[in-house]
Amino acid sequence: MKELYGQPLHYLTNLSMKQWDYLRIGANDEDVPLDTLIDPAKAESSIWRVEEMHRNTISPFFIARLWHGDPMYHVYIDAIFPELKDPSK
């Protein structure tokens, strides 16, 4: 998704997607690619709806508590480097 739209997904959206993948373990159709089970356009639309809800409703304090309890939180966070003006100009 990031490669397509140039923005990372919300931390909770990443966790949700990871949980959705985990829920398939042991299912009869576990080895079937998701794009054959679910229309890719509908899947993408659903992800963006979840993303919108997370971005608009989740408290920063809640995210901080989640990060505090998750030693691997940095795996889901993209580094943001501001573009600096050229100092020689």
Rank of each mutant, 00 (worst) to 15 (best):
M1L: 12
I77N: 02
A27R: 10
I25T: 04
P71N: 02
F61G: 06
Y5F: 13
I63T: 04
R24V: 02
S46Y: 14
F62T: 12
G69Y: 10
T13D: 00
D39F: 03
W48F: 15
A41F: 09
V50I: 15
Y76K: 04
D39V: 07
P8H: 04
G69V: 03
V75Q: 11
W20A: 15
G26P: 00
S46R: 04
H10T: 06
D86H: 03
D35M: 05
N56E: 15
L84S: 04
Q19H: 13
S16A: 15
I58F: 08
P60Q: 05
G69E: 02
D78A: 08
D39T: 02
Q19L: 12
W20F: 14
D70I: 05
Y76E: 14
D86A: 03
D29M: 07
D39G: 01
L4I: 03
L84G: 04
E51T: 03
D86P: 03
W20V: 05
M17G: 05
A43M: 15
V50S: 02
P40R: 08
L15R: 13
K42Q: 09
S46K: 10
S16L: 14
K42Y: 04
E52C: 07
E30F: 15
K89C: 05
H68S: 06
I80W: 12
L66V: 14
M17Y: 07
F62W: 06
I25A: 03
D39P: 01
H68A: 09
L9W: 02
Y76M: 13
S46G: 12
G6I: 06
F61N: 07
A64W: 07
L66K: 05
N56K: 15
M1W: 11
A64V: 03
P40A: 09
T57E: 13
V75T: 14
A43W: 12
A41I: 09
D78Q: 12
T36E: 09
V50A: 14
L12W: 01
E30W: 05
M17W: 08
L23I: 00
I77T: 10
G6S: 05
L34Q: 03
P40S: 05
K18S: 08
G6H: 03
R55E: 11
S88N: 06
Q7V: 08
I58G: 00
N14A: 09
M17R: 13
Q19T: 05
D70V: 11
V75M: 11
L37G: 00
P8Q: 04
N14T: 07
D29I: 08
E3T: 08
I63L: 13
W48C: 01
A79F: 11
I25F: 12
L23T: 00
F61M: 05
E30I: 02
E83Y: 03
Y5P: 01
L4N: 07
T36M: 11
D78K: 10
E51L: 08
P60K: 13
F61E: 13
W48N: 03
G26W: 00
E3F: 14
S46E: 10
K85H: 05
N56L: 15
K18L: 15
H10Y: 12
